[in-house]
Design a protein around this nucleic acid. Structure first.
Lengths: 338, 338
DNA sequence: TGGGTTTGATAAACCGGTATAGCTCCTGCA
DNA sequence: TGCAGGAGCTATACCGGTTTATCAAACCCA
């Protein structure tokens, strides 16, 4: 017998298919003795549910999806997604739910994927990343009635469930530390302004600047690429009044910035302090090693999975879970200004 | 009507369910006129097949799997997997087949996943990476009768289908270049010896050494981590007769090695040439930028997907496809020895 | 003109589960 | 003693497709 079905188990146990289904799903309808017997037989036949059959009957596929809309070439440098993925999987594996991952070029393609997934019943829910200002995906998912959880960024006016960390506090912990070291000219090389988290970081810096006595605290936006990170850095360091500290919104840009500083003969941390808004092996490989904000990305993913499963179970409740605050890991790239 | 089924289409078109199925799958059994009519109705009802229903009926789930067995923390630094994934997806999307991705800790867990996938009919086939010497996964997949394709490394004695690049030629192109520059002391910081590609690279270097007149060409194995890469480099550069060039099996180790050289006051490329056996943004961000071997990882993935689909269609044929050879991208980290 | 083959379509079985109506037997309580 | 009610189980419909057996009508050629 190749792959046993519940019918085989039923025959073997001398009961009906229904009884076997009850027993295997731990729901009432059979006596403990019978349940025990059925489970034992299923075990020794090494039976496993046929996912498609179960999906068809129970209209639930035990699978969730995640789409990453970024050009592949900018992806993968950052361990962010790898860690996030592992975390998500760890949160799902307990319920033995599988994950569909898709990398696409842009948001339009991403929405197309959601439509397809919904109409083909391929996933029970999805996890969203990189929430933008007025994100079109939110309405789309609402319309599709596809359970979803947003990672990093509250879903807006009670729209979608979310798992988020406080970007504002994170930015504050960085600039307060720099200010305490004595820095008054702090520049911020930000990411794309369409991302909500970019906006929150920019606002946090602007709001804190007066209180901390910063004379100049510009936020300059980029596309997150190393090229733009380097270009902006070059511009900043060419000014007559150059900043004494730069905060980068990603580890890749911070590394690119460090390269520019070295090339221009600006010593780090002597003449310039550098902080990366994301930690990774990259920041540790550098000389000097970069001070960076560490987030527990794995845990982030795990919680997202958890919240998504709860949302699937009860689409009514909109959960907004705040995760642990990121912490600043101080390394060699920060020092008092000279 | 929420989600139309073929029954709805059948009613609308005034034909039977069977006729609709034939029409939608482009198989004989209906006249062209009827087919046309059915397709139009399906289109305007925006019908899409229910994946589970189709899987149950046709015993094929239109989904393939890929398991990566590496600790999450070492993952993601290398763009390798991100590019590979994109490539695989691009190869699959044409047939609108989805990809299940799983990151696990070790091979035992990976095999467990294959067993589950097979018994639950969750995938039609799988893609294998990081083939080891005497890889236990090969036999396991054979036993499970799960179609598979191996990436990077011939599947062995006609075992599994594969997509591979010639590691031997690649290594030769590196050392021949270094030898031509005048290097005679070349060290090789290799990966884990259990990987087949590591073995092939080591062997290639050993075989070429006499012909190129290398006086010393040791291959030192590591676990691919930046820590070991740095440690081995430190050891190599502390010898009285230090190598004038080092070939690293990964970009991360090369970067770590560069860091050690700088820390020890060994100038690159003046006193030491460095080559990475893998290209990425990392190698480009460095100062000096690293000479690296570039492989078309995206294309690699695309071809793997293609071969897998062919293998699923005809499990008898064992395809071994060789992809384009990697090319050496020369940057600033290599020069003639002084 | 008639028998055999092809064409176009239908009805029904089937895939492997889940959900539900209904049946039997046992227990408890008035 | 009689009856309500629940436990334990069976039989069966159902999910949305695919596939097969069957059949009527059209076609072909002698």
């Amino acid at each position: 017998m190749a792959r046993p079905t519940i019918a085989d188990i039923a025959t073997q146990a001398g009961v009906s298919k229904g009884a076997v289904s009850f027993a295997l799903n731990g729901r009432p309808g059979v006596s403990d003795a019978t349940r025990e017997r059925i489970l034992k037989i299923a075990e020794q036949m090494s039976w496993r549910p046929h996912s498609a059959a179960r999906a068809l009957g129970a209209s639930r596929v035990d699978s969730v999806g995640m789409v990453i809309a970024r050009p592949a070439r900018t992806l993968g440098v950052e361990p962010f997604f790898a860690h996030l993925l592992s975390g998500v999987q760890s949160g799902l594996s307990a319920e033995s739910i599988s994950l569909q991952l898709l990398i696409v070029e842009d948001t339009a393609a991403e929405i197309e994927v959601y439509r397809r997934w919904a109409s083909e019943h391929r996933v029970d829910g999805v996890i969203l990343v990189d929430l933008t200002v007025k994100d079109p995906r939110v309405d789309e998912l609402k319309a599709l009635e596809l359970p979803a959880v947003v990672i990093g960024g509250r879903g807006g006016k009670g729209a979608l469930a979310s798992v988020w960390a406080d970007d504002r506090d994170a930015m504050l912990s960085i600039v307060e530390y720099l200010a305490a070291l004595g820095h008054r000219r702090i520049a911020h090389v930000a990411g794309t302004p369409i991302f909500q988290h970019t906006q929150r970081r920019i606002r946090a810096l602007r709001d804190a600047a007066p209180r901390l006595g910063l004379v100049d605290a510009p936020s300059l936006t980029t596309d997150f690429s190393d090229a733009e990170g380097a270009a902006i850095t070059r511009k900043l360091l060419s000014q007559s009044e150059r900043p004494t500290a730069i905060v980068y919104d990603s580890d890749v840009m911070a590394v690119a910035g460090l390269g520019v500083a070295m090339e221009m003969g600006v010593s780090v941390p002597g003449d310039l302090s550098i902080v990366a808004f994301d930690d990774s092996i990259l920041t540790q490989l550098m000389h000097p090693a970069l001070t960076a904000l560490s987030r527990d990305t794995f845990e982030f993913g795990r919680q997202a999975a958890e919240v998504l499963l709860e949302t699937i179970a009860d689409p009514g409740a909109v959960i907004n879970r705040r995760t642990a605050d990121p912490v600043l890991t101080v390394r060699e790239s920060t020092a008092p200004p000279t």
